[in-house]
Amino acid sequence: MYIGQITDTANATPLPESLAGVEAAIKRINAEGGINGRVITLITCDDKADANEAAKCARQAVRENVSATIGNNSNFGEAILSVLERGGVASIGQLPITQQDFASPVAFPLQAGSAGMIAGAAKLLASQGATAIALAAVDSPAGALNEQFANAGLAATSAKVLGLTLVPIEAPDYASYAATVARGSDGILIGMNSDQAGRFVQSLKQAGASQRIALTVGAVPPSMVIRLGAASQGLLVTSPFRPIEAGGASNAQYLADMKAYAPRAKKNVFSQGGWVAVETFVRVMKARKITDFSPANVLDVMGSLEDFDAGDMIPPLTTNTTLPAPYNRLFVNKVMFARIQNGQLALIDEEWHGGLIQ
């Protein structure tokens, strides 16, 4: 059985750990005898941060007759999914970045992506008492959408978005931007990558800001928490998966697989995403006792799930439902709430908080 994985190693912020998570899970599954007696052969392809190369990778996957692509990590979901649609090949657990990742009939994202995490972060701030929330994001098309997502997360609350401050990626100093979001707000939502988010938090703290601050889990890896030191205390965090620090059976297996098969790779939300994509596929195929791994059959099986238990890293998965556009494939519209306490990420509660994007 062949499985495809399309990744990006040429991006400004490459995430090779996504592939590492996929590889670690597959190696353990094969060591245990494969899926219903069939071992997995992984075919990887680098899209080289280019839409045309991404489409070529997808065409290769179709040509090689892969059962599915699993854990794709690319900025060019539209290019990939349009090819996979024509070939009738499922994309399971891809990192959802583009609109097509939530709309394609062959897409099975296992998380709410940045849209859901930003919406969740706004909802988390409101749950902690914030009523006037200011947003800061990278000055980019994706960053400009943060206000839309935050408003979606606040729809059922009395909290409001004060405004969105877009910060140029090349800005040498964040002090003026930090002052803008601090003015008149009692909650601040930062939608940036870890380096920028860390600098922004430091600028806020240096200016004496005391507001609640929320970020997505990818923005506060352990290395960033260490660098921030005391400034990280109390930061609110949304996670699309059960955080590694929160334990659980799936995280225990994930950590064991990473230690055994990818010991040098980072253990973070991106390697979690690759790992859980494989784990979900394997659990589904074993539960249904599948022996026909043709792309068409895998696509049918993946689209027939109802409250399927894929482990405790993600909530139960239902795919046999019709969701409204433009998020037709938003099967996991939930995140977990956490905060940084004494240098560690700790769950606020054990709930999956949903209803984020409508």
Rank of each mutant, 00 (worst) to 15 (best):
E78H: 07
I3A: 15
P96T: 14
S250N: 09
E245A: 07
S304C: 15
T319S: 13
M285N: 13
K289N: 15
Y327L: 10
N268T: 05
S232F: 03
S158P: 04
P222L: 00
G184E: 05
A103W: 14
P243K: 04
Q358I: 00
S203L: 01
N320Q: 10
N30W: 04
C45L: 07
A256T: 08
M117S: 14
A79G: 14
Q358K: 03
T9G: 13
V161Y: 01
P295K: 08
D292T: 07
A171K: 01
L189C: 00
E279V: 08
R59V: 09
P105C: 13
T157S: 08
A182N: 06
V62P: 14
P96G: 12
I35Y: 03
Y174A: 01
A338I: 07
G274V: 11
K205I: 02
G187H: 01
S91D: 15
P105H: 10
G129Q: 08
M302W: 12
A231C: 02
V167F: 01
T165V: 09
K334F: 12
A231K: 00
V39I: 08
Q60G: 10
T280D: 15
A182I: 01
F281Q: 14
A142K: 06
L15Y: 05
V332Q: 11
L345P: 10
A152K: 01
T319H: 11
P14W: 06
A159L: 02
C57H: 05
P172E: 02
T13H: 09
L166Y: 02
I348K: 04
D8A: 07
M313D: 15
S250T: 12
M258R: 03
S271M: 09
Q100K: 12
A130G: 06
A137N: 06
A103Y: 14
N72Y: 11
L81C: 12
G116I: 09
I226W: 04
G71Q: 09
N73D: 15
P295N: 14
L189F: 02
S82G: 10
E306N: 12
K334W: 09
R288D: 15
A58Q: 08
P105N: 13
